[in-house]
Amino acid sequence: MFMHTDDKIRTVENIDPYISAEIPNIHEDPDLYSLVKEFMIHGPCGAENMNSPCMVDNKHSKKFPKKISNQTSVDADGFPIYRRHDDGSVVDKSGVKLDNRNVVPYNKNLLKRFQAHINVEWCNQAGSIKYLLKYINKGPDRATVEVAQTNNEDDNAEQVDEIKDFYNRRYLSASEAT
Rank of each mutant, 00 (worst) to 15 (best):
Val12Arg: 06
Ala157Tyr: 01
Asp161Cys: 05
Lys59Met: 14
Asn102Asp: 10
Ile129Thr: 09
Arg83Lys: 15
Ala116Gly: 03
Ile163Ala: 06
Asp75His: 15
Met50His: 03
Thr178His: 01
His60Thr: 02
Ile41Asp: 03
Met55Lys: 01
Lys93Tyr: 03
Gln149Asn: 14
Val36Trp: 14
Leu133Asn: 12
Ser89Gly: 10
Ala21Gln: 02
Lys138Cys: 12
Arg84Glu: 13
His85Ile: 07
Glu153Thr: 09
Pro30Trp: 06
Glu158Arg: 11
Pro44Asn: 06
Asn58Arg: 11
Ile136Val: 15
Ser61Trp: 05
Lys93Ser: 10
Asp99Trp: 09
Asn119Tyr: 11
Glu38Asp: 11
Arg113Gly: 01
Asn102Lys: 04
Asn100Leu: 13
Asp29Ala: 01
Tyr82Met: 01
Lys130Ser: 10
Glu153Lys: 14
Leu172Gln: 11
Asp7Gly: 03
Lys93Thr: 05
Asn109Ala: 11
Lys130Val: 15
Arg10Ser: 11
Met55Thr: 04
Asn14Phe: 03
Ile118Pro: 00
Trp122Leu: 14
Asp155Val: 15
His42Lys: 13
Val160Glu: 15
Gly43Ile: 03
Ser73Thr: 15
Met3Arg: 07
Val96Ile: 11
Thr144Arg: 11
Tyr167Gly: 02
Lys134Asn: 13
Arg101Glu: 12
Gly88Trp: 14
Ala47Asn: 14
Pro24Gln: 13
Ser173Leu: 14
Glu121Ser: 06
Asn25Leu: 11
Phe39Glu: 05
Val145Ala: 09
Lys112His: 10
Thr11Glu: 04
Tyr167Ser: 10
Lys67Asn: 03
Arg170Leu: 12
Met3Gly: 00
Pro24Ala: 12
Cys123Gln: 01
Asp16Leu: 01
Asn109Tyr: 12
His42Trp: 08
Arg10Gly: 08
Gly78Arg: 09
Val147Trp: 10
Val96Met: 07
Asn25Phe: 08
Asp154Leu: 05
Val96Asn: 05
Ile81Thr: 07
Pro80Ile: 00
Asp86Trp: 01
Arg169Lys: 08
Glu146Ala: 12
His117Pro: 02
Glu162Asp: 08
Lys97Tyr: 08
Thr150His: 12
Val145Cys: 11
Gln125Trp: 01
Ile68Ala: 07
Thr72Tyr: 00
Gln125Glu: 06
Ile41His: 02
Ala174Phe: 05
Asp92Thr: 15
Asn14Gly: 10
His42Met: 13
Met40Glu: 08
His4Gln: 13
Pro44Ser: 06
Phe64Ile: 02
Asp154His: 09
Arg142Lys: 09
Asn107Pro: 08
Ala47Trp: 09
Glu121Ala: 02
Lys134Trp: 05
Lys134Ser: 11
Lys108Gln: 08
Thr72Arg: 00
Asn156Asp: 13
Arg84Tyr: 14
Met3Lys: 06
Asp161Tyr: 02
Ile81Phe: 04
Cys123Pro: 00
Met55Arg: 00
